[in-house]
């Protein structure tokens, strides 16, 4: 199949390794990414563009925070929760972090079981990932509700610099949107795995291309990226 020819890496060629392989691959005819299928390469390039989007958000946040003369609200206190009578700083964000990391763990294992053709485990692990993701979005909804009730607005908040609200809603909102989209696609992909679409090479409803278990890995790339972005948001927004 012509389709498969695109997919299998160039086995016939003896590929160089190390630093010289970069020049070799890029200068070669037809395809620069010898070991990655077009789908995986395109997902990586999309994620690179998304990296720049989140970088710009975090950079604008850094700029407004460094240039304001009004004290920045202390995230440790703003995101504290009262549990069992004691105020625990930043606890909700810590729980959200652990949930997202766990979802990445189950996703990585789903990819692994996908390549082993274990449909049941792949489906269940992807559904677990989706459940973790949904609970993350739920907690974010709780956090937003709490802050809005306390009077945080994109243009004002009770504790300090006005730019806090706009940065917070912009950055966490955009990240939450990514998580939500990820959950939707996880559900779609897990349904395909469950039906065995990737075993039979059933054409996708939108692209009409034959699905392969690599689709699970590409889905995983997106999901891990969402977790990756959260690592940066957690460090730079909540811990600064």
């Amino acid at each position: 199949m012509a389709d498969d020819a695109l997919v299998t890496p160039g086995d016939a060629l003896t590929l160089r390794t190390g630093w010289r392989s970069v020049a070799g691959d890029w200068a070669s005819d037809q395809r620069a990414f010898k070991s990655a299928s077009w789908g995986k390469a395109m997902m990586w390039i999309f994620l690179l563009s998304d990296t720049f989007i989140f970088s710009c958000f975090l950079l604008s946040y850094m700029t407004v925070r460094m240039s304001t003369t009004v004290p920045w609200p202390n995230p440790s206190m703003v995101f504290a929760l009262r549990l069992g009578g004691t105020e625990i700083p930043l606890i909700l964000i810590a729980i959200m972090t652990f949930i997202l990391i766990s979802s990445s763990g189950t996703m990585a294992m789903a990819v692994n079981y996908g390549y082993r053709r274990d449909r049941v485990k792949t489906t269940l692990l992807m559904l677990a990932t989706a459940a973790f993701g949904a609970s993350f979005v739920g907690m974010q909804g709780f956090e937003w509700t709490k802050l809005i009730r306390e009077g945080v607005r994109p243009w004002h908040n009770p504790w300090g610099a006005d730019q806090f609200g706009s940065s917070f809603f912009m950055i966490t909102g955009f990240h939450g949107t990514h998580v939500t989209i990820g959950v939707i696609f996880l559900l779609i992909t897990s349904r395909k795995v469950w039906r065995g679409d990737f075993d039979h090479g059933k054409p996708g409803f939108f692209t009409s291309r034959k699905g392969r278990y690599e689709n699970v890995e590409i889905m995983g790339l997106y999901w891990h990226f969402v977790d990756l972005v959260w690592v940066f948001i957690f460090a730079l927004f909540y811990l600064w």
């Binding site: 630093w19 990655a36 690179l48 995983g220």
Partner: peptide, 20 residues
Amino acid sequence: LIVGVFMHMAWERLALVYAI
């Protein structure tokens, strides 16, 4: 750790690694 192991970047060819 996330990029290298979970996203399998540690096993990709350098042409892709550097491009990204």
